[in-house]
Every structure is written in structure tokens, then in C-alpha cells.
Amino acid sequence: MKCTRCKKLACVSLPSHHSGFCKDCYPLFFTRQVETAIRREKMFTHGERILVALSGGKDSLALMLELKLQGYDITGLHIDLGIPNSSNKARAKVENFCDMHDLTLQVLEMEKEGLPIPEVKAFINRPVCAVCGKVKRHHFNRIAREGGFDVLATGHNLDDEVARLFANTLRWDTAYLSDQGPMLPAAEGFVRKVKPLFRLTEFETANYAFLKGIEIHSAPCPYSGGASFTNHKKLWGELEHRSPGQKFQFYHGFLKRGKPAFPVQEETSGVTLTPCDECGSPTSVGTCSVCRIKATVRENKAKAEATQG
């Protein structure tokens, strides 16, 4: 296969774009997709401060490097979840990456926050992935707010967005459908949230990370077995193989024609947010869900220790 741009031997084939690219031209394709996403969705400007959530995976590290190359004012944020034999490896990849590329990094340790994820798994009777996601979003927003950042950027890609939209649609979850998108404007207590990789698939970010020599943390989380999004991604992988471009059409069709119907509904059934009594984060009840989770972990852990003792 030849490169669509320069006719040299291609190293990446993209059926959904009817294109292939060589190692020199592929990063240009990637850069242009990110530039288009930022421009069309008015995500941020070169004058704004951007906090980038870094998990250590290919997507977040590729995003961080690409935003640096595009000259944005970026700071990385990694949350050390405290999961044995996993979190330390992810953290090391992020720290090495930021050292290598001279990038500013903040690390939040869940152990020090009194909520290491192994304790959430042990003492909270809910799916650990859902609680972990909630806790991470809470701290991303809190740190962005407290640090005076204009925007929080995450490495969510087209596959992530399609899997989430698919799950939300299967449940007809109008609340989630009303705010799903690549750019969520700032609101009372919440910073603006953006997903600059939303036009690119996991395959495309994986190729970029490889060509840029990014060392990634690729081992799955030991707690994530059976996560529904992973199964949805497999289903969509088959659909995309049979009909290249389906993912993009599904997601962009939603943004253009589906999503506009949902905010109207949420306006009539939405709830009022006030600052959490304990941490100040926005919540619809007096104490936010993360503070309540922390309290429940504390109580259940004390009960378990009393029983053992």
C-alpha cells in the first residue's frame, strides 16, 4: 500500500478515510485531526491553561505530546489509584514520559486522600469501575478548579465515545445523552471539559504513540474484567470492519441530529447543584457522592477490623 500523501510505502492503513500513510505523513494526519477537533468545537485557545488527565495509556500520553507540539500551555495530572502491582507501573510511565518531554506533572495519591481503590473494591457494594470513574472525575474537576485551569482535557477517543453513546442509548439514559459530547462548557462548580482526540480511533492513537516512541502502560486494570464498555468496543470493531466509517457516522450523527433533543428534556427534569458540605464540589444533595463513599469505606473498614479483632 502506498502513502496517500507522498506515495512512499504506507505503514498505516485507514479504510474509514480511504487512505494510507507513511511514517512521516501519518503524524501530520493525526495533528490535523486534533487541530480540527479543537477548532470546530472551540475547545481552548493558546492563551488558556489546560490540565491534561494522564493515565499512562496511549491516548492520554499521545494527547499530551500532541498538545505540547501544538504549543499549548499544558500541565499533566496523574491519579495514583493505589492498586497493587498496577498503579505503580502506570505512574512510572507517566513520570518518565513527562521527564523525557520536559512536561509539568501533578500526581494525586488516592492513598493520601483516604480512598485507595482496593478499599473501594473491598468495602463498597457497587461495581468498582463505576465508583473509580466517579472518584477520578471528581478529583480531575476539583484540581482543575482549585489550580485555576481554564479547561480539563482527557484522552477519550472515538471508540470511547461510541462505546459510551451506545451504552447510553441502550438504556435511553437521557441525562447522560444530554451532556455527552467532545466539549462540555464550564458551569457552576465545573470547569470546561474537552476530548481533543474524539475524531481519532484507538487504532489511530496507538499508531501515533508507536511512531512517536511513547512508552505506554498497556496492561489492563486488574479490576476491569468484564467491563461492559470493552464488550461494546468489540461489537463496534466488527461493525467498523464490515462497514468502515460507521463509528464516525454514528457519533457525529448523534452530535448533529440526536443530541439537540435531549437538553430540552433535561431542562425540565434537571436538578439544582450546591457546594458539598465537606469538600465544596458541586452536588445535588448536601454531601457529594465521593465524600459519602469515603465515609462508607471508613465505616465498613472499621466494622471489618472490629469483627476480625
Binding site: M1, S13, K58, E202, F210, S218
Partner: peptide, 22 residues
């Protein structure tokens, strides 16, 4: 990086890295 139409020679070692994050 290799596209799926590339030929391989016996004795070669290749990397196959799944891209779906879990």
C-alpha cells in the same frame, strides 16, 4: 509499522499490540 497486506519471511519476529484499552 506494517499494514495488513505486508508479506512476512519465515524466522521473523513481530510485535502485535492490541489497541483496545480495557
Amino acid at each position: 509499522l506494517l499494514t495488513s497486506d505486508r508479506r512476512l519471511t519465515p524466522g521473523e519476529t513481530i510485535l502485535v499490540r492490541k489497541v483496545t484499552s480495557a
